[in-house]
Design a binder for these strands. Structure first.
Lengths: 105, 105
DNA sequence: GCTTCCTGCAATGATTCAGTTGCACAAGAC
DNA sequence: GTCTTGTGCAACTGAATCATTGCAGGAAGC
């Protein structure tokens, strides 16, 4: 997972409503219409959010007859967490090195 | 780190320019004016981004005379990564349980 | 066939956001 | 004291985004 694909994931996760959608999908896969029944937004709004989440690779669309069900891709979350952890560790390393140089002066 | 404070962090990380700012701060703490010399945006734009990053707890302001230097808080990154990993694991657990029930039918 | 439900596209409105310019003020440098 | 440099606030523009309503099409159910 490169840094370029990382930014859209964070952008997708940086919205409260989208977290509601993800939480609702935690009960199992569901269609946009089904989610609209549980959340205080219209079906179209949810469809847009699902499209954003799908673009970020956080959910996956599955056709089931005439309806389209969405399911969470937990692997994407884990991969993002790993990348974030690696970046944090890298920063720790660099900042520690800077501190060391500063003390050496 | 609660879920509420998590969303602003993701929103802050969901912007390419903000990543440029963070990367530039990886070389050590710097002021908004100094960063403006290295990035293709004005000082005010950078100041706004730094304000967002500070609000998310990703950077910290340090007064040094008349200038305000910002430094990365790598710990926030690590904490966010841990939370994300925990959420991913929780989803894995729930989705596995659902799958198990579905097979049991 | 007809009806019903779910999806998809288009247009609109309101809000937010990124970025700019301009100006005022404060603190070092000389 | 004067000049320079860094910061802060305010107003403005343009673009993106969130959410809405309305309507058309398509696939199952009867």
């Amino acid at each position: 997972m490169s840094t370029e694909t990382l930014v859209p994931v964070f952008a997708a996760l940086g919205d409260e409503t989208r977290w509601s959608v993800l939480e609702a999908l935690g009960d199992g896969e569901a269609s946009a219409s089904a989610l609209a029944g549980r959340l205080p937004v219209t079906r179209q709004a949810i469809a847009r959010h699902l499209s954003v989440l799908e673009g970020a690779g956080l959910v996956e669309a599955v056709r089931a007859g005439r309806e389209v069900r969405y399911r969470v891709l937990a692997s994407r979350l884990s991969a993002t967490a790993r990348r974030l952890d690696a970046i944090g560790a890298e920063w720790d390393r660099r900042l520690a090195a800077i501190r060391e140089i500063a003390e050496g002066l």
